[in-house]
Amino acid sequence: MSKIEFPAKALFICNGSKCGKHKEVRKYFKNTIKENNLKQDIEIFKMECSNRCKSAPIVFFQPENEWFEKVSLDKAKKMISTIIPQKNS
């Protein structure tokens, strides 16, 4: 039986009614991870409503156990540069 491989890191993006409206944030993370060949290092998951609608959109990063609120595209770009290690080209 073959061994299942899992990425070391995971990015959970709330997909509740308010957070789910911010599709551009999820799309940015997805495209950036793909463009930087990080699919084997980090995986994106949609999570159910986190009941933090006043702070939408919510993003949760593991294994660092970091929660981010009101994630705009600018904030997403800063997150990528600090918490997701870029591979050298």
Rank of each mutant, 00 (worst) to 15 (best):
1 M>T: 13
1 M>A: 15
1 M>R: 14
1 M>C: 11
2 S>M: 09
3 K>Q: 08
3 K>F: 12
4 I>G: 07
5 E>G: 08
5 E>D: 12
6 F>H: 09
6 F>G: 05
7 P>T: 00
7 P>F: 05
8 A>R: 07
8 A>N: 15
8 A>W: 00
9 K>Y: 01
10 A>Q: 11
10 A>F: 00
11 L>E: 02
12 F>W: 05
15 N>A: 14
15 N>Y: 01
17 S>E: 14
18 K>S: 12
18 K>V: 02
20 G>W: 06
21 K>W: 03
22 H>E: 02
22 H>M: 07
23 K>V: 08
24 E>D: 13
25 V>S: 05
25 V>H: 06
25 V>T: 03
26 R>M: 08
26 R>V: 07
26 R>P: 00
27 K>E: 15
28 Y>K: 08
28 Y>D: 08
28 Y>V: 00
30 K>P: 00
30 K>G: 05
30 K>W: 04
33 I>T: 01
33 I>N: 02
35 E>M: 08
35 E>D: 15
36 N>M: 11
38 L>D: 02
38 L>K: 09
38 L>E: 03
42 I>C: 09
43 E>A: 14
44 I>E: 05
46 K>H: 07
46 K>M: 07
48 E>F: 02
48 E>A: 13
52 R>S: 13
52 R>H: 14
55 S>L: 15
56 A>V: 05
57 P>R: 03
57 P>I: 02
58 I>M: 15
60 F>W: 09
60 F>A: 13
63 P>G: 10
64 E>Q: 13
65 N>M: 11
65 N>Y: 12
67 W>G: 12
67 W>N: 13
67 W>E: 14
68 F>I: 03
68 F>A: 04
69 E>H: 02
71 V>K: 09
72 S>K: 05
74 D>L: 13
74 D>R: 15
75 K>T: 04
76 A>D: 10
76 A>G: 07
77 K>A: 15
78 K>S: 12
78 K>P: 00
80 I>V: 15
82 T>F: 09
82 T>W: 05
85 P>Q: 06
87 K>E: 06
88 N>I: 12
88 N>C: 09
88 N>R: 08
88 N>G: 10
89 S>W: 11
